[in-house]
Design a binder for these strands. Sequence first.
DNA 1: ATGAAAGCGCTAACAC
DNA 2: GTGTTAGCGCTTTCAT
Lengths: 334, 334
Amino acid sequence: MTNIRKVAELAGVSVATVSRTLRSPDVVSPATRDKVLQAVNEAGYKPNLMAVRFRSRRTHNLVVLVPTIANTFFARVISGIQEAAQERGYGVLLCNTNGHEETEATYASLVTTRQADGVIQLRAYNPFPEDADSDGTPLPMVNACEVLDDAPCPTVKLDNRAAARLLTEHLLALGHRRIGMIKGPRRSPLTRDRVAGYRDALEAAGIALDESLICPGDFTPRSGYEAAGTLIARAEPPTAIFCESDEMAIGAISCLKQAGLAIPGDISVAGFDDIDFASYSDPPLTTIAQPAEAFGKQAVAMLIDVLERRHQGEPHRMLPHELVIRGSTGEPAT
Amino acid sequence: MTNIRKVAELAGVSVATVSRTLRSPDVVSPATRDKVLQAVNEAGYKPNLMAVRFRSRRTHNLVVLVPTIANTFFARVISGIQEAAQERGYGVLLCNTNGHEETEATYASLVTTRQADGVIQLRAYNPFPEDADSDGTPLPMVNACEVLDDAPCPTVKLDNRAAARLLTEHLLALGHRRIGMIKGPRRSPLTRDRVAGYRDALEAAGIALDESLICPGDFTPRSGYEAAGTLIARAEPPTAIFCESDEMAIGAISCLKQAGLAIPGDISVAGFDDIDFASYSDPPLTTIAQPAEAFGKQAVAMLIDVLERRHQGEPHRMLPHELVIRGSTGEPAT
DNA sequence: ATGAAAGCGCTAACAC
DNA sequence: GTGTTAGCGCTTTCAT
């Protein structure tokens, strides 16, 4: 194993000089620098980063807690995280938690056991023990996408309420009065906010809320398929369905078509996220576009800020959304 | 920072005893063990894994080189990797390479700089320098999914040639004689093998190959969309299109429908991978199912085998594929 | 069964 | 500008 001592011997200098040449080249004389650099080359020397990091007490790794990576939206967020982290010299440790809180706690301990410097949590859950931040040092975490109401750390999210309202208003403007909703898991703040936006819009339009038109799903196409089946089996089925994810919308469309309904002729469907497939669905999905990669990049920037004790800046960010109108929504049948 | 020395003091033993209690409990006396364990609890001690790993010269991290994680198939493979790694006590460092070979080389150096123990490469490219394995020690790598012909390491892949042949035969059996193909990037062995399987089937059926019916794509829906447009613009367009990924098939279907073609009435479309969306496409996609998660798990098992110098076993594995017939393929129009 | 002590490879005072 | 040296937190001989 070629280590710093070998290089020092080869160059005829001390290990300190080698270290300095590598870390702060301008502090050694040009002559020595050349000697050392040549020795480094000759020996094919690569600093052992485990040693470097051990000594400097920084792993330069970030852990990402994601419910499931097999979700197109999260995959894009992770792409953004990975790219931003790489730029800043950090590695990304990926942790699929499947929503298990014990698993998340285990992963948070990657930080306490010094395998990672901080965590990016993509779910509304604090994996650290209750008293973790009671010592005054900020929690090395940022919470993105699905965010805790009282997150003990910086957050980045969408204005889910406003976005859901915007989409619902689009449906109302088309003339829909019975609008179904396929929401996410019950406990999620993200779902709660989107349902709130949906209510806001209905209320502003003077339409009474029909609870039986709201069906829970889990963001997968399968759950969208099933929920759509439930909705059209209602005595008075909706004329439009707002799905809280494009994946569910795609599942829902599949179910509706199988039931012989035309989209948007018989029933309109809208999604949320604007994943790639949304444009290629038949009909193309009306949806809310989220800046998925930007969530990842922003989260990384914020986390590194707290890790490197930079100015805390504004700790809660909202990223912009956009209503994308495609062919899956139209006027209700008369 | 509570370290092993603090615990030792607290328990009134030496640091060596604390270390032993934690690593090999059966070698210390029950009395001491209790004392130590209690001190560990009291101090809330967690071993600093950076130190442990630095000393033991193992990071217990695996790096995954993936062209793009925003691809449904790869996302599933990574899920499998992550799960298997976690079970074996390894972490997963994710590296999106976007196919840049320089980036891959950089990441391979995570191994030489001791930030990871080994790499799982999901593309057909050796990111290590030419002479890396000339010293007799096996390369700490396994190559999965898209595999080098002369991989200098264990590999796991599909029998792409047989799978493509199987799918093509299905199309031939339906009566198709002009079968288009939307393949992957030109240089990829995976694409080459699938094209070979397609040729095998045509040849066995006594059909001359028409090169103009083979169009390259890059596995994204967009590229499938565009390639399909090219194919139907041919003087004699195909009656069926074999796409080398479901994502491209979904893009292709979108294009064909826009052109007013019925599927499979006017033209059949088949995909490859069997991603979740394949079942929810309209019509549902006929495709080849690949055991994506199993690729990941197998790759991890093989890599850890080489890392821990276990029996090399059989170094090249093929995982099974299955033809899944759904509604997107049918008899050609007469 | 336990302790003392030598490092793993590196960086950063501190001297010169 | 460069060398000497003391650790970082841990594991592991080697004694006892």
